[in-house]
Amino acid sequence: MAPVGHKSDVSNESLEKTFSMKGGKGESSYVNNSQAQAQHARSMLHLLRETLDLVQLNSPEIPFVVADLGCSCGSNTIYMIDVIIKHITKRYEATDYEQPPEFSAFFSDLPSNDFNTLFQLLPPYGGGSMEECLASNSHRSYFAAGVPGSFYRRLFPAKSVDVFYSAFSLHWLSQVPDIVLDKRSTAYNKGKIFIHGANESTATAYKKQFQGDLAGFLRSRSKEMKRGGSMFLVCLGRTSLDPTDQGGAGLLFGTHFQDAWDDLVQEGLITSEKRDNFNIPVYAPSLHDFKEVVEADGSFIINKLDVFRGGSPLVVNQPDDAAEIGRALANSCRSVSGVLVDAHIGDQLSEELFYRVEHRASSQAKELLEQLQFFHIVASLSLA
Rank of each mutant, 00 (worst) to 15 (best):
S169L: 02
I193M: 07
G197H: 12
G228P: 14
R154C: 10
V163N: 08
T204N: 03
F232W: 06
I195K: 00
T239W: 04
G229V: 06
Q209M: 00
K192Y: 15
L236V: 09
V176E: 09
F168V: 05
A203S: 13
K223I: 11
Q209A: 06
K183H: 08
F217Y: 10
E224L: 05
S166T: 12
S185E: 13
S220Y: 00
N199C: 03
K207S: 01
S222W: 04
D182A: 14
V234F: 03
S222G: 10
F194S: 15
L218C: 02
L173R: 00
A198L: 00
C235Q: 06
H171M: 10
P177R: 03
V161F: 12
D182G: 09
L181Y: 07
P243Q: 10
S160E: 11
F194V: 10
G212A: 10
V147T: 15
W172T: 02
V163H: 12
H196N: 14
G228M: 15
F210C: 04
K226P: 08
W172Y: 13
A215D: 10
M231Q: 11
D178Y: 08
F156Q: 11
E224M: 07
A145T: 12
R184K: 15
A198G: 15
P243K: 01
D178M: 12
L241Y: 09
A215G: 10
P243L: 03
G191V: 04
G191T: 02
V234H: 00
L236K: 14
E200Y: 05
G229S: 08
K223G: 12
D242C: 11
D162S: 14
V163T: 07
G149A: 13
T202H: 01
Y165K: 06
G216P: 01
L214N: 03
N199R: 05
S150E: 08
I195M: 07
A167F: 12
V163Y: 08
A167C: 10
Y165M: 11
Q211V: 00
L170Q: 06
A144N: 13
P243F: 09
Q209N: 01
A205Y: 00
